[in-house]
């Protein structure tokens, strides 16, 4: 599926490159910034907020990966396992509230 999709889309791109005109000029190849000349480097430091959110995301994503197998076996779980499961989710809820309190989720 991946191979076929890549092939199909690749063929489209190549076909388009054969059909379209190609007249590059200096002005055309400039970085677009509403007509102004670009000042400085693009690849600069970015907001730390993105990093913090990504960290919170990693926690929850891994949590979800761990929860899916449990969810599949849910009907056969004994009560002890269910209580453990709820405790696990509660710990995550507390972690979320902690991140919230610390201001990791605020966006200014």
């Amino acid at each position: 599926m991946i191979v076929t999709a890549a092939l199909l889309m690749g063929v489209t791109l190549i076909a388009a490159s054969l059909l379209r005109p190609k007249k590059p000029s200096k002005a055309k190849l400039e970085t677009y910034e509403c007509g102004m000349e670009t000042v400085g480097d693009t690849w600069v430091q970015f907001r730390v907020q993105y990093y913090v959110l990504a960290l919170v995301f990693v926690v929850f994503d891994i949590e979800a990966v761990l929860l899916f197998p449990i969810a599949v076996a849910f009907n056969a779980l004994p009560w002890l396992a269910v209580i453990n499961l709820i405790l696990f989710i509660l710990i995550l809820l507390i972690a979320l509230l902690y991140a919230w309190r610390k201001g990791a989720l605020d966006w200014e």
């Binding site: 379209r20 970085t31 670009t38």
Partner: peptide, 28 residues
């Protein structure tokens, strides 16, 4: 199909040209 397609001189050519392919493949 027939539009001219520019690659900015400052762009990272490989990453720039692969990105549309990657998004279409993942979607399909």
């Amino acid at each position: 199909f027939t539009k001219e397609d520019t690659t900015p001189a400052a762009a990272d050519r490989w990453v720039y040209n692969l990105a549309p392919l990657v998004i279409a493949v993942f979607a399909l």
